[in-house]
Design a protein around this nucleic acid. Structure first.
Lengths: 338, 338
DNA sequence: AATTAGCACTCTATTCACGAGAGTGCTAAT
DNA sequence: ATTAGCACTCTCGTGAATAGAGTGCTAATT
């Protein structure tokens, strides 16, 4: 059932007003604030219709209307008008992009998370590139002092992982080099999680000498392949507490507790579709704690592969247009910078 | 003015009861729950005295008594009895200590923070060894691919910092080695923050070739010396929200916001005396947001030097005895493990 | 002289009733 | 088809009434 143009305008007005006021909006308010050329009574009738078709809700008989989830959904899909980014916002994004090369990748991602939350005033969840999905680029083994060394693993996405290992005292320099060269040859270009235990076993049987050293080094590689540490960066956790819907301490607690469970959040964000921006409104979220929140989720690329996920978490009455524009712009710039 | 033995026992009872109930405790309660062999009336009289001398307070005329800050202070200084650690608690501490070598230092510290908060049910703040105060051990420069390399800095405390650098294409292997050897020779054993810019300048003028490469590498070292990132690990942030004194969302927010300001917290914890355990009760804390909280603070050592700080943050009515015992034990074990 | 029983008193927290205010839904007029 | 008008509904804040907890004081007891 399609909505009349007038109903759409009214719905739009209700959503907009509620997004800013967080108070149920009445017919009089709409008539005054939005010049629709209609009297409160007419608006009342239309709102009653909108309620019947499920786009609006009434907290109680004598209160104004509040958008329902369906109302928000319709707003996001059809009513929302794109907004332009402010100069400051663009500047903030460009600033961190410029500094990208100077930082380690994790710091860079943390920056992204901070900027997002400070611009939006919501909470940002950013997953960085997952080492598991990165490709083996190079392995180096340094001997630091007699008996001790450092194995260093470098991936194409810029990860540098290291692990201190013990080196047999009797080990010859050339022997070590030969071994490292062999490992590099064997693993080069493979994504870390495809370096399976069978491949590792094969390598081990090829290099039957130096088992101790080898084991420790291979552990580094194996860990990288298995590691769940698609590390999460949270930004502006406290922002969301400013929302009037968080007046209840229990809600605060359960949400904050959730924030400490990285694994859960990862599975949540991980399910983002690899193209475009996804808006999850209230109940559309899978997690109980998010049922009265909304999220704008998207993935971004590094080296042309889908590597990370960005999510902005806010109240259901979040400023969808602003958030979407911002995220869209950021991802565009991230991807293009390759 | 010294307190009579009986007053001490009553004060002790009040503190203990309040620590567990968080409710003002009345004379009747004390008479019933603690077998002091006294009637409520007698206890009432004593409590009135204790109030007059500032050890107890009354929220309002017809409520029970609550320990004042002075009361807690006296309790901590003279009344508190040491408690034994539970088996589980010892086991949990030993477990992470055992896994120490397998982890990078930062992960290890995070573990400590987690264990502390889960045992105490309070919030733990743990500062790791500060790279700034660690000593230069070794510098390595790897050439990864034409034009690109990786500089690696290793400190005596187990930090491994790296930075990708660009290598001049024309650079000869031997030239690079010579330079790195020189830097190692120059810096070995110095704490990072004593590697001043004048020393760096000196090095630069000694090695007038390869300025670009040199600059990037020295940046790594300089950053390490200046870095404020005595990184903070927070554990159990939500624990503290379970305390009844955090029923107010504004309080929650201001505390959580504070938790995001690492620098502030560092300065706060940093001022811990380098010996023994310090208990800061309420107003004794410097930070406004901590005025109605208490902290148990201490420092721990790595390689025999004071390197990190541990703080447990809880309500003023925290279980001082339990927390102190736990922290004492942990630090003892940390220090002894060298 | 110290302790205790008894009792009046104080203060809080909770419940209930009441009125103001906001907003609706319906009817009748435009 | 729109709008003015009005009765109706529901929430929220205020104030009064009440129950409960705990004290402080006085007088009795040990």
């Amino acid at each position: 059932m399609a909505l009349s143009e007038r109903k759409k305008r009214i719905l739009q007005a209700v959503v907009r007003d509620y997004i800013h006021s967080a108070e149920p909006v009445g017919s009089r308010t709409i008539a005054r604030r939005y010049s629709l050329g209609l009297s409160p009574a007419t608006i009342r009738n239309e709102m009653a219709d909108l309620e019947e078709s499920g786009y609006l809700e009434q907290p109680h008989t004598s209160a104004g209307r509040v958008p329902s989830q369906r109302g928000y959904r319709f707003y996001v899909d059809s009513l929302m008008e794109t907004v332009a980014l402010g100069k400051d916002e663009v500047a903030a994004v460009e600033k961190i992009l410029k500094e990208r090369r100077e930082k380690e990748i994790e710091q860079f991602i943390q920056q992204i998370s901070r900027v997002l939350s400070s611009i939006t005033n919501y909470t940002s969840l950013v997953f960085g590139p997952i080492i598991r999905k990165s490709a083996f680029k190079q392995l180096k083994v340094l001997s630091l002092e007699p008996g001790h060394g450092l194995a260093i693993l470098i991936t194409d996405t810029g990860f540098v992982k290291h692990k201190s290992i013990s080196l047999p005292l009797a080990l010859e320099e050339r022997e070590l080099e030969r071994m490292v060269a062999y490992l590099n040859h064997k693993f080069y270009g493979l994504t870390m999680d495809t370096i399976t235990s069978s491949l590792l076993k094969e390598v081990k049987s090829d290099l039957i000498n130096n088992v101790g050293l080898l084991n420790e080094t291979l552990n580094l590689i194996e860990d990288a392949g298995r590691s769940e540490d698609g590390k999460l960066f949270l930004g502006g956790t406290t922002n969301i507490l400013n929302q009037p819907e968080f007046r209840d301490v229990n809600k605060v607690r359960s949400l904050l507790t959730l924030f400490e469970e990285e694994a859960l959040l990862e599975s949540l964000l991980g399910s983002a579709s690899p193209t475009g921006i996804e808006v999850r409104i209230g109940e559309e979220n899978k997690l109980e704690e998010f049922k009265d929140l909304s999220m704008v989720v998207t993935t971004y690329q590094v080296v042309g592969r889908n590597m990370g996920t960005i999510g902005i978490l806010g109240p259901i009455r979040m400023e969808y247009a602003r958030v979407i524009t911002l995220v869209e712009y950021l991802v565009l710039r991230l991807n293009s910078a390759g």
